[in-house]
Amino acid sequence: MLRDTEINQFIRDGFVRIDNAFPRELADEGCAILWKDTGCNPTDSTTWTQPVIRLGGYAQEPFQKAVNTPSLHDAFDQLVGKGRWEPRNSLGTFPIRFPSPDDPGDTGWHAEASFAGEDGSWRLNVASKGRALLMLFLFSDVGPEDAPTRILVGSHQDVPKWLQPAGDNGLSFIELAQQFDEVTLNRPVELATGPAGTVYLCHPFLVHAAQPHRGSVPRFMAQPPLLPAEPIQLNRSDGDYSPVEQAIRQGLFKKDGRFLF
């Protein structure tokens, strides 16, 4: 169970780190599967010819077990609400990052899009349609030089004010990124580091970015969404707001005591 301080941290900073969220044995089993699919040799760095290889759709037993531990389910209930999230049986995409001097080409600050618009663009709206959480599952040990995801602390509370005027259709993730101002981009940076088995549970609006790998051991990480079982609500008659909803509401709160909705 998350402590009250951790829940408050999630609302304030936009993420919480859970140590030992799943066993290292599952991480090792998962990495063995992933290594085979990369086509690379784990003991021969001359075969690591790309800065990043993306693999997706992993629903084998190690991945199913990793995303369904009791501690994670308890945290989902606490952050999103009991009955408000959909169980997962896979871990989706793995952007596997290799030590390389080359630019991986995907290191810009962004918030994850969560639904397809009518024009085919990937978008997000103020109710976070299609995403209850962004999750980072570390399947390898990740240190500061191992391309850890960069997190702009508290940036999730900047995003609602840009999404709210766009209504249900929201903004594409590119359109949103064009709104980032000096306040957001100068926020403190946290690195998503930790031993294999660590999970970062992040607010869906958290601004984050990849970075080049300057270490020596490839980084294995999954970044699946937790899907909502019901729409996120910003006006609940009973006031039973989840921490995800509380953070969005705080981002819409004006100094004069009014909300931007």
Rank of each mutant, 00 (worst) to 15 (best):
K161T: 07
K161V: 12
K161L: 04
Q164W: 00
Q164C: 03
P165N: 14
P165C: 13
P165I: 04
A166L: 02
A166S: 13
G167M: 11
G167A: 12
G167Q: 11
D168C: 08
D168Y: 03
N169M: 12
N169L: 10
L171C: 04
L171H: 02
L171A: 04
S172E: 00
F173K: 02
F173L: 02
I174C: 00
E175A: 07
E175C: 01
L176M: 06
A177D: 14
A177F: 01
Q178H: 07
Q179I: 06
Q179D: 10
Q179G: 12
D181F: 01
V183I: 07
V183K: 06
L185S: 05
L185A: 06
L185T: 15
N186C: 07
N186F: 04
N186V: 05
R187P: 14
P188W: 03
P188L: 04
P188G: 07
V189I: 12
V189R: 02
E190M: 14
A192S: 12
A192K: 09
A192G: 12
T193K: 07
T193I: 15
T193Q: 12
G194Q: 15
P195H: 11
P195K: 14
A196M: 12
G197A: 12
T198C: 11
V199P: 05
V199W: 07
V199L: 14
Y200P: 11
Y200M: 10
L201R: 04
C202H: 11
C202N: 15
H203E: 06
